[in-house]
Design a protein around this nucleic acid. Structure first.
Lengths: 211, 211, 211, 211
DNA sequence: AATGAATGAGAGTTCATTCAT
DNA sequence: CATGAATGAACTCTCATTCAT
């Protein structure tokens, strides 16, 4: 890449470069402690160039949030699309995918779930992005909801509100991973995977039809 | 209260005033976006006065964190001390207490659960407070763990690791309330209480002995 | 002493108490780093009381300066008043007195000779005190000048301007002690007393009549 | 110079500009009373720009101290390098150089000799600079010591410790100039040059071999 | 298009001084 | 008289953003 990104591709590549640098820094230092200068130094570019590609610090954060959710959505979609599997199995696949996302993209997970920026700031400016994020979040939840619905239909799960159940399941996953994030698990000597397996097992058990 | 807090009570009242103002601001804006000037303006006092009552910005934050956990612990202890109740019922009492804490002290909940300060800064200065907080957190978890243990002993629950289950249960509660916090529930038209009841029902069901 | 200084003596004693505390702090921490609160804490009084006895921080500094010069003047007068001694001997007595002043009242010496306050600030407000200080300084110099004059008259010293010589002698003493103050001597392994003796010896030798 | 210093020279020039402004302010107001804002206002730049060129307030002070000693050292070296001259003459050349330094660079002299910063602060941060300064000070003293040593060897001076004598000579110079600095001479109607000439004459006379 | 020097509005914190008690 | 809580201006330093180059 030359000093100037004349072609559209070169520009895109440069944009990507900045995004990566920003993602790493937001992950390592959090939103407030991340400076534009630091991002651009990591990207091997100058400070001013940042504003050629992004409008503001908060904008790039939102874009990353958006990216993260995109990746998660894709990982989930792929995981869930095993048509042959039972609903329980597909839910396990989905939660596994969530865990995998956390492990493979911890930076994105942090940005999505821990959210170190105050919601206000996130909403204030350029609310269009915020809306997009909300919509994507919803789409993910819907996927899980659909699986549960099918499980109920097929008689695998007892009669329950698929939406409620999906939301609860997702809250559970978020909550557990957050415990891990805050190092609260280490103190107790519990491993995240075991915890998820255990908690999820209980919940799925509760969802299944009793005979 | 006069213009100057001469008596010990007046001083305590003023301290409380500042704490409240700080709590509100930390809740609304997060740690970084909260400024001393803003806190003191809300308290109707001048900036310099802050340092008559507190050592630093991070100190007041830790104190609030500590307060919050204290309140939560008390609410939980009171709720859990129904000796006659079954394990399930006592767990419901505990989670109800957690929800009540969230509803009655949302600012505290935010400070405790979302924790918007970088962990580093929280640990760096005056680490004694950080330790206290960690210990209290653990104590809360232990209370829940004990209930489960008793439930296992009494045969109400099937054989399971009380610690794992308690941690999972707490993660679930955190996760669900956080969804509510982020307004994710409103979009889906779900109420927090219903969600908690539902999710908890499933989990407890999974924990119970099957015959 | 009671909580209130009703009698004139009690007030004077309190004034003295504050002055001592201030002197110690100015010596240990310098002018800028000394705070009124610290002074009054050391004096066992409250901050506000300071302004009952002194107009400002700079005023008390000037007063101490004044005190210091008073003490020095007295020590010198006493030392010099050996009427029987030769001029050289009396000069040695005077310089010894200066050294003794430095050793016995290092705090005062520091305030007088090192002068950590900018001259501007010293002159700006209430110039009357500054004038007094200047006058006293002059009086000290005059004493030394007189000794030299007598030495010249008696033929012990060769013909020289007593004022010039006195000023030079005093500058020498100040300069040497300042070297000691700045720890410059320690690096070179020289002791102040030896240095003074040596330098003064040379100068006095230069002053004496050659045959 | 344009509004922005793009080239390396322009940057150096701007750095110099700030250094000059700082030097003047340190000279006029002392270390504590000098503010970054004031320095930069004098330099015609904004406050933030200061930190583009210097790390901190104490750093720029140390740099100036260093500069000053450099200039003095050079002036002395040049003055002293008259190989043909006698030891006395070379000492006079050295002291003349010191006086010239005081007259041509009074701001630097003040920074070097009066030293208005508490030694602690000077040592605390980035102690390497402090060491350099100490070393340079020593080097200057050594130059004078060498001259005296040669004078003793050549028989021009009587047997005396060159180090002691050099230190004493330097203390004398410092002391005399400081008298001038504090305006103590003006009151007495003495001119610095005359005073130096006189005092130095006496001392040198004392150092010479008597026959 | 790219640079990075410059800006300036704050940030947290300190402290001489005031004044209600 | 004495107190010490309260003030608020001033301090050093940071950083998102701008804009001359």
């Amino acid at each position: 890449m030359g000093r100037r990104a004349r072609t559209e591709e070169a520009k895109q590549a440069r944009r990507e470069l900045i995004l990566e640098a920003a993602r790493d820094s937001f992950f390592k230092l959090g939103y407030e402690a991340t400076t534009i200068e630091r991002i651009m130094e990591a990207a091997g570019l100058s400070t001013g160039t940042f504003y050629l590609y992004f409008k503001s610090k908060i904008e790039i954060y939102k874009i990353l949030l958006d990216h993260g959710i995109d990746i998660l959505e894709q990982m989930l979609s792929r995981a869930v699309s095993h048509p042959s599997a039972s609903a329980s199995e597909r839910i396990l696949l989905a939660t596994d995918a969530y865990l995998a996302f956390y492990e493979q993209h911890p930076e994105y997970f942090d940005i999505i779930a821990v959210i170190s920026v105050r919601a206000d700031e996130l909403r204030e400016r350029e609310s269009s992005i915020s809306q997009t994020i909300d919509e994507k979040n919803l789409r993910i939840l819907k996927q899980v909801g659909l699986i549960i619905e099918q499980g109920v239909h097929s008689g695998e799960f007892r009669s329950l509100d698929p939406w409620l159940a999906a939301t609860g399941l997702w809250g559970l996953m978020d909550g557990l991973i957050m415990l891990a994030e805050r190092n609260n698990l280490r103190t107790v000597g519990i491993e995240l995977k075991a915890l998820v397996k255990h908690s999820l097992g209980l919940t799925l058990d509760g969802m299944r039809t009793k005979n």
